[in-house]
Amino acid sequence: MFVRVIKTLSARNLITADKEREMINEQLRPMRAFFDRALRNLNVLQVPAYAALTRADVMKPASKDTQDRVAALTEIWPGLPIDVLHRRFMPKHAKPLRRVPNREAVSTDLSVAGEGDLL
């Protein structure tokens, strides 16, 4: 709809062709930047070693391998918010959990894990 409205202005000579391009690009740029970021984020999380991580792994890695994987992901994305880690802040469209971590119980004690554990 946005492009059509801008093109309507241009077609009726209410704005110039240059202004039309400028207005469209102004909206397009942040959108493309977001598209780039979204795909980059998925590329990282598609790595099986990272995709398989759960909250329990991040809070209390059960093995050296898990610890290394969490450390590597923390280097890419430092500062996982504590509220996200403890599920107090979730995506609006969060999907109901399918995989219940059974390796370790998720601790609800806030002193057990913090951002410090991730760095």
């Binding site: 795909l39 999380l45 909250r55 994305w77 995506p91 609006k92 969060a94 999907k95 399918r98």
Partner: peptide
């Protein structure tokens, strides 16, 4: 499609997927 995959990972208790999904939203 990428966001959908993040959403699926979020459903597997991956906190980083949740975080990226929150930022995307």
């Amino acid at each position: 499609s990428a966001l959908r995959n993040l959403w699926l990972l979020s459903g597997q208790d991956n906190p980083y997927a949740d975080w990226m999904l929150i930022l995307s939203e």
